[in-house]
Every structure is written in C-alpha cells, then in structure tokens.
Design a binder for these strands. Structure first.
Length: 572
RNA sequence: GCGCCCGUAGCUCAGCCCGGAUAGAGCAUCUGACUUCUAAUCAGGUGGUCGGAGGUUCAAAUCCUCCCGGGCGCGCCA
C-alpha cells in the first residue's frame, strides 16, 4: 500500500483485508490447494454498495475461479476457511461469509466503529489523514490569467481547482507549491499599451480612433483616468517605446488587482513568475542549446524550429521567428526547465480548453530536452457557462458583455462559488446557475453541507447550556461508543470511515469533486441521524456516545469544507 | 480532416481511470413529519433501451472497435 492511515478508517480496513487475503492465498498455494501463480493474481477489495453485504468485500474467488478450475463459490469457501483460521483477536473483522456469485464479504465488530469515531474526533483540524510512502515535490501552476483585463469566471474555476489540489497533495504527504505565471511580455502588452494610449487621449478630449485589435473593455477607460492623474496626458504620435511602457504600466496595475481579487477568493500563490524575467534571463538560450545539442533544432525559412514531431506532435513548431523574436513556446519551455531545476519532480498545469492544442508541443519540447514526460501533467479546466433565469448569460469579450470574477463573488459569495466549481469534474463544461448559487435556501447544495456543521455546533452549544458535560476526545472510549447501534448511527459512522480514503482518492486522481459529493453524503447521513436520534436525551451514557459521534461528524465536515476552501459555520 | 471533452431519470450531474451483487444523488413532481438539540431538515412514491451497434468476459454504464449527436482546439498569437 502506498498510503499509511494514522486513524482507523475504511481504507486501513481494506488494507488489512487485502493483506489477509494475500497471506491466505500464499497458504493455499504452498499447501498445493492452489497453483503457485494464484498468489499474484489480481483482485479487488472494496466497499460494497449495499451495507447488507458487509463493510468490505472481495471478488478474489470470482477472478481466480477460472485459472484454478473451481466453481467461484467453492473456491470462496476454501479461502474463507483459511481466513477464519487466521483471524486474530485484535482484528476488526468479525465474520466472513460467501455471498452471491462468489463474493467474500467481511463484517466488522463494534470495536471498529468505535475506533473510527475516536480516531477522527481526536485528530486535530488540518491533520494529515493519510501519509504517502513515496512523497513527491509538486508544483501546481494555475490561473495565470493575462494581465490585459479583468479575470473572468473561468479563472475563478481554475483558482478553486488549483488551490484544492495544493491542499489535497499537502495533506496526503506530498509537498505542493502554487505558482502563477504572469504573461507580461510579447505582443499583448504592446496591444494593451496602444489601447491604453487611445483611451488616455480620448479621456483628455482627443477624438482618436481605438485600435482595431485593442482591448475594448471599459476597465481601460478607468485605467486611462488613473493614468492621466498619475502620469499626465500623452503628446504626439505613439511609438513602440511608449506603447511598451504604457503596456507595462497597465499590466502592473491589472496584476495587482488580480492579486487582490484572488486574495479575496482565499487563494494564495507561493510564487509569481514573470514571463518578462524568463525572457530576459539565460533560460531561453539554454533551452536552445540543449535542444540543439540533442538534435531537435533546425533552421528553415529564417526561423528556428523545434522537431516536436519526434514526440508525437502534429507538426514542428517555431521557437525563434524569422524576425529574431521568440514565440510563446520558447520562454515557456525555459520556464518549465526552471520548474524542474528548482527541484520539483511533478509539474502540474491547469489550463483552459483553448490551450488543449498546446499540450502536445509543450510535452514534446520537454521530452526533447530530456525531461521524463510523465512528470508533466496538464489539467484542462473546461468552460463555464453562466445561467440566469434559466438562460445563458452571453459572454462576449468583444462586445464587452462578460461576467467578471469580481462580479461573480459579489453575486454569489466565495463559499457558493467555490463549492459550485468544485462539485463538477474539471473536464466537464460547467453550467453555473447564478440564481441557485445565490439562493439562501434548501435548494442550494453548499448550504446543505454547511447546515450539518451548524446543526452540530448548535447541539454542542445546547449541551453546554444545559450543563451537560461535553466529552473530550480522550474521555470517550470503546465501551461508551458501543452504545451506538441505530441504523442511522451506523450509517453515519460508516460514512465517516470513508473520509481518509476519499481524500486520497481525490488527491490521486486530482478530482476534488469527489470530496464535494462525499461531504454532501456525510451531511445527508448526519441529517438523517439528527432526525431519528435525539442526542441530548435522558440516558447520560447514550448522550455521551452521540455527542462524540457529533464531534467526529463535525470534524469531517469541517475538514472537507476546509479542503475545498469553503467555510464551516457554527451558526446559520 | 486530425486531436480532446461531453452524451446516464423531465432538468443538472455522480459512478467509468481500476469491470462485479437490484444503476445513484440533487432539482422538479406527488404523499407524509416541526409544543422537542436550527424544517436551510427528514421519511416515502413517481421517473432509466446508461446516445447506437458490435466485440471481450462467468459478469459491461465501466474495457475494445465502429457509428451518431453536442462543444472546443488545430498561428512565425499569447
């Protein structure tokens, strides 16, 4: 197993069962009951959908039946006999049975449930719930919006994703850093400068035309007024030098607004790397040197080309244009070389769907430089379509009718925005229902999860108010928790036990939407429990057990919401 | 044309990577539950040829092939 789980949970239980099965198979093959290769045969150990099938189930007999030449159920009972003989007193496993077409189901004892609740309640908030045995040093680059205009709703989606990736990886034993690449160089800065110049002149009363390929948004009119106030009017015809200077000025202003907005969203970056610095540094020439030495560089039509077709790209790519300037790819390769040189052994980028065609050339370039391809990953964060009143909000940057990230946060708030983005997998285009996200009602899933946390806080407060001693984690033991037995209680504990495994699964697959789904499940189990099981009751021992279950539930809800960057309120 | 994403209940989606036991949620809709720790809640009903067709398998929403529909990308732009 690649992960160690410090608390009792379903993942550690599954690991225990898998080890038992491996040992049993070894026994059987060394006694000649099974052929030798049976030991290595693949099988799965998982949680059955139906709780009636026990806590853990395996298909080992089904997948082995054919090579062994036995009926699955017969083989299963053979294995069960060995397993039962090996069961020791400390095991969480209580009963093992053959079921259905040949599954082996494992049932757990009360000690397992008690340890789950205890372990979770005792762990401090922000604990490492799982420790990877092969930790990696991961760099996650995301958002990296052009400093030529306000950030849009898609940027908010990427920000939420990258932020959670970092936390997930750090909490599962890896070392992850976040980084923002500032595209403050190249033609777009010049375009930005020309656009600003035109707006400044217009603001000063000159009737000058706006550049055809300029950035039309109103934000540049505001910036132009600031520019006038700070730098004064512009005189005479523009030239390259002035456009670049004005472009730099505007980009710096826009960048600081982006930083502030991301901060408001709760997303921080460990480092901001500027494309301009990469371009002026030695990296770009180094990349060319390396590629040249390795034979992946050639000249054609006065330009320098990367032979990316050697690594499955559709066509070769220009790195240095015929006018001597660099394409976007060259500094980007230098940037990624820098990432690896800084010691990161796993580099993840979150890009928009418009960059999908860019992945292969980047991968090819890095491979040509000798970096292992598998250390470079790109997550495509798909588009967001905004819906209001059941209709699509048209998003035309050209027409200036787009919704900015700023406006989104004003509209729906940080918690709802983040939760909505994280509810869906990054690879799916997202329909963001503004009305639903704004709604402070039962229809809004984010409140459903938060409400569970607030309810628990209410119970704990109520207990204190009535003079009930709220037990600390250390005070509750297995015996006290053995009183938990109602179906709703058991279902809730079973769900809590999934948490460390769910977190690892989300981290490994980089799919935080699993956690959103999971926390809604925990909330659902809690709400059922709340309805059926009175916590603050007559029976003091039962009250203590349930208070402890409440604390463990609150801990899990808070942990998951925290991972997602959503607050866990005590009152709603 | 090539590449990627999507197609599962009326709507929005999970499940697919790594095949398992009667395919799950939420919304909508219908029926019930607040003198009790928060009803922003709960219990239950209705609703499915998992886009289609083949194939692999003891077993396919899941893996393979082909096809259909929707979205996006294929610059010496960034």
């Amino acid at each position: 197993m690649r992960y160690v789980y410090p608390t009792a949970c379903h993942a550690s239980l599954a690991a225990e069962v898998e080890a038992m099965l491996r040992a049993a198979l070894t026994d059987l093959s060394s006694s000649g009951a099974l052929p030798g290769q049976a030991e290595q045969f693949p099988f799965t150990v998982e949680k059955p959908r139906d709780p009636a099938h026990g806590e853990v189930a395996t298909n080992v007999a089904l997948s082995l039946a054919k090579v062994v030449g036995k009926a699955p159920r017969d083989l299963a009972s053979l294995i069960v006999d060995v397993l039962e003989a090996r069961l020791d007193q400390d095991s969480y496993i209580d009963a093992i049975e053959v079921a259905g077409p040949g599954f082996i189901n494992f049932r757990t004892n009360a000690r397992y449930l008690a340890d789950v609740v205890c372990g979770i309640a005792k762990a401090p908030l922000g604990s490492r719930w799982a420790e990877c045995r092969q930790p990696r040093s991961v760099l996650i680059e995301f958002v990296s919006a052009n400093p030529t205009g306000p950030m849009l709703v898609v940027n908010a989606r990427a920000a939420a994703l990258g932020d959670v990736y970092c936390r997930l990886l750090n909490r599962t034993g890896h070392r992850a850093s976040s980084e923002y690449y500032v595209n403050d160089a190249g033609g777009q800065i010049r375009t930005l400068g020309r656009s600003l110049e035109a707006r400044v002149r217009q603001a000063a009363g000159d009737d000058v035309p706006f550049p055809e390929d300029g950035y039309p948004g109103d934000y540049l009119r505001d910036l132009a007024n600031d520019y006038l106030a700070v730098c004064g009017p512009v005189e005479g015809p523009g030239d390259e030098e002035r456009w670049m200077r004005m472009g730099d000025w505007a980009a710096a202003r826009i960048l600081s607004e982006q930083k502030a907005l991301l901060e408001r969203y709760g997303v921080t970056f460990d480092r901001w790397t500027h494309e301009s610095a990469i371009r002026s540094g030695p990296g770009t020439e180094e990349v060319l040197d390396i590629l040249c030495k390795r034979g992946y560089l050639y000249e054609k039509d006065d330009a320098l080309w990367l032979r990316s077709t050697a690594y499955q790209d559709d066509k070769d790519r220009v790195l240095v244009k015929s006018d001597g300037s660099y394409t976007y790819l060259l500094p980007d390769l230098a940037y990624h070389m820098d990432k690896f040189d800084r010691g990161f052994d796993r580099v993840i980028n979150i890009w928009g769907p418009d960059h999908h065609g860019y992945i292969q050339r980047m991968r090819a370039g890095l491979a040509a430089m000798g970096y292992p391809e598998e250390n470079f990953e790109v997550i495509i964060s798909q588009w967001v379509r905004l819906l209001s009143g059941g209709k699509e909000v048209s998003m035309s940057k050209r027409g200036g009718t787009y919704v900015t990230m700023d406006e989104l946060l004003d509209e729906v708030g940080r918690d709802a925005a983040r939760f909505f983005f994280l509810m869906r997998s990054a690879s799916s285009p997202l329909d963001f229902d503004l009305d639903l996200a704004k709604e402070q009602s039962n229809e809004n899933p984010v409140y459903y999860a938060q409400y569970a946390h607030a309810r628990i806080a209410g119970i704990l407060e109520g207990a204190r108010g009535r003079g009930v001693n709220v037990p600390s984690a250390e005070e509750v033991n297995r015996d006290a928790l053995a009183l938990l037995g109602a179906p709703e209680e058991l279902a809730l504990v079973r769900r809590l036990a999934d948490f460390p495994g769910e977190m690892v699964a989300a981290a490994e697959s980089l799919e935080p939407h699993r956690l959103a789904t999971y926390v809604l499940g925990v909330a659902a189990e809690f709400h059922s429990f709340y309805t059926e099981c009175r916590v603050l009751g007559e029976d003091a021992a039962l009250t203590r057990a349930r208070l402890h279950l409440c604390q463990a539930s609150a801990r899990v809800v808070a942990e998951v919401l925290g991972l997602l960057g959503v607050t866990a309120p005590n009152r709603m």
